[in-house]
Design a protein around this nucleic acid. Sequence first.
RNA 1: GGGCCCGUGGUGUAGCGGUUAACAUGUAGCCCUGUCAAGGCUGAGACCGCGGGUUCGAAUCCCGUCGGGCCCGCCA
Length: 586
Amino acid sequence: MFRSHTCGELRLDHVGQEVTLAGWVHRRRDHGELIFLDLRDRYGLTQVVFDRVHAAAHQAAEEARSEYVLQVRGRVRARPAEAVNPHLATGGVELEALSVQLLNPARTPPLYIAQEGGEEESLRLKYRYLDLRRERMQRNLILRHRVIKFMRDFLDREGFLEIETPILIKSTPEGARDYLVPSRLHPGKFYALPQSPQQLKQLLMVAGYDRYFQIARCFRDEDQRSDRQPEFTQLDMELSFVEQEDVLTLLERLFTELCQSITPHKRLSTPFRRLTYAEAMERYGSDKPDLRYDLELVDLSDLLTETPFQLFRNALSAGGKIKGLRAPGCAGYSRKQLDELVEISRSGGASGMAWASLPADGGDIRSSFGKNLAPGELAAIVARMGGQPGDLLLLIADQPAIVAAGLDRLRREFATRLGLADPDELSFAWIVDFPMFDWNKDEGRWDAMHHPFTSPLDEDLHLLESDPGRARAKAYDLVLNGYEVGGGSIRIYRRDVQQKVFDLLGISRETAQMQFGHMLEAFEYGAPPHGGIAPGIDRIVMLLANEATIREVMAFPKTQQAVDLMTSAPSSVDERQLKDLHIRLR
RNA sequence: GGGCCCGUGGUGUAGCGGUUAACAUGUAGCCCUGUCAAGGCUGAGACCGCGGGUUCGAAUCCCGUCGGGCCCGCCA
């Protein structure tokens, strides 16, 4: 027996017992005759005291260094009243060491386990096994475990079956780039790693497994972000004989109970708010708005249809919009600060940004564009935006998508600057009624906004022929604090509707047959109405953990260049391996 | 594919045209019986990511390159 207790376990109840602990040397305080040593494992810290009375143990403690692995046999005793450590769960007791076994020494670690933060992230990634010893990562991985455990238990109670699907599947050029795996047995052919088990879960519906889920690893060979890794984990789900409302209601219950159970210290607003895609874009300029704060966008277009200001008029006559954002209390912004804001709006594609500042003392309005307006127009803008003395008003006039992108960025910028987003609030929302299609101007055709199996709204079916751009889908996203944490849809199960959608997407019958033949065939053998969703577990855990990147909630993440700094993957391989795979490098 | 930021002992920083390259921490040795970021004394440790250029002289300026981060495009 290596240990009788963990390092987080001993309490006053154990006083007098002889116990054995095993763990890492967290810190050592050497007073000569007396040595204090904090022994650590993932359960906690226990102070071990070495007295010269037990000479061999004392000697071992003198030689011990940070991160040595020790086994200590000792007697639990209460600490003297003045030496109790209230910051430690085990702080009421200490272990009087009787004997010590050095299980393994350790080199001086390149990062401090006992003191977190500060170092380059690349160092943490290279020595991830040391980083993972730290409390922060332990806390995050434990949280992640609890989230996944909760999902499994909840869905099991709801009658779902967890079913694994293959990792080696057929490549489809739709959507994200696939990671490919060359086939040794079939020269020149490749498997793909799943971007998600989308098709497989739909086939499980055809097979009658009407409530399926999987904690599914997904792979996408695209560029990385703080919330995107080449491989990530989704709670993949699919249900048969359901409508959109059934999916939303179930997921809302799942996440409400999950948050109440796992992060009770966070404020969760229920029921989840619901916005149509059009409404979200109109009011927040984003399909994943952070609803912890207001700062809504205000449409000013109708006030300015007759304005003499050419720039505004041109924007409107080109089918654009003029919208504004009110930044409370920011009237005092300097030229330099305003320039920064212009830069931010430009990053959304806007060619410019107009501003007006309302002095706190009620004095005359300063603005970048007032002199160009007709009398009364500036006042009308201020009134429409609810401008108060001390406010800064920002306007963008451009195509709707550019106005939205620019103001969305400014809105988030002000939320940060003004500290409007409460880190302990969880603001879930459903975004519904997404458009079916996106116009792809490079290719001159429609793209599926979600994926080609997404069903249109019943009342928009007729638009597929007359006006596809206005057709809405039974597609929904779950949004949390400004992040998309899940997306799903009700699927098409009627052959004729599927064909229409393929036609619109420019997928020929031959292509459809080649890429989705198995799906289409399966759907001819009795496909039930079905739909599903796939919440992203990394992002959800990141938000619950108040972390800024999903790397902080993954045990072994990759860098932005998709490199594993610990193992140096990807790497070259033997010529022999390539030969087996019938691959020659160019 | 593009933009921005970062790269100095093990770690985190300072230095930004001429310094024995500074400080903290860690680390090594010694002292020390109640510490819990223990304390005290002494010491070792970087030629400044890499390559090139400018200059009498470069960690410091310029160019390139490599690595890391954030973002756009891409991706749901």
